[in-house]
Amino acid sequence: MLKELLLVFALAVPLACSDSLSRQETADKWKPILVTVNELAQPTDVYQAPLFGNQVSLHLYVLAPSDSSDLTAEVQAPDQQPLTLPLQTLEMGEKTVSSYPGVDLLKFTAVARLPSQTNLGALDPSLAEAQLLRFRYGFLLSDGQRTVPVTGDFPAYSGADIPGAQWNVLGSTISSPEDQAETGQTVTLEADLANPQGEAIKVGWYVSAGELKNRRAESTEWTLPGSGTYTAIMTVRGKQSRTAQLAVRTIKAP
């Protein structure tokens, strides 16, 4: 075991440092950046946890250079594996494109109906009494030349009162800079994170151009390539709740 552990450690170092070839945070090519589950239509809405037997909506966000209209998404059945159940009934819905300076934000919607507790029991008797199950989804993004599989999972509950069912990080936003702000060549990006349950969260910043000091930090510096109008996108995920939030800011640099 020691050999394997040290091997993992040894491999982890170069993998952790493998960012020299290109950077994830820029919009040099289209790239998936987030999948939300049951996201709020309005900020004032109340979060609805995925429940057995209910419909669940997924939104796949893709960051793309302007005019990436050829991009399509389809459902891809995920591999079977023991810790999660494959989400069988997922169907693709509409695609919307929001254009921001230097970047498009594509949003693919998909819906599925989760199996009821009865159906789960019929599928596997050991699941008849389950209060929490994880469902795995899969998408396949393609522009005809390049394809990128997207996968993830989320928890679903037998009832809304199951402990943990209401955990979420929704309401997180960008506190700095303000939208449409005029800035210098270096911009401080700062997230205002909603994390009432104190779960482990993960921040990811994306920008239309420029360089970030640390795209995982709650607060970081963004160096712009020159004057112009730019876009910054913040994503935040709750590692336990699997809820996620996205926020966008555009800025102008003289």
Binding site: F9, A16, D19, Q24, R215, R216, A217
Partner: peptide, 20 residues
């Protein structure tokens, strides 16, 4: 002791600490 930049860093300076 290594402090290396990593996209997976949770530190403010964006680096990961590795020590043997």
């Amino acid at each position: 002791s290594l402090l290396v930049p990593s996209a997976n860093s949770e530190r403010e300076d964006g680096r990961v600490n590795v020590e043997f």
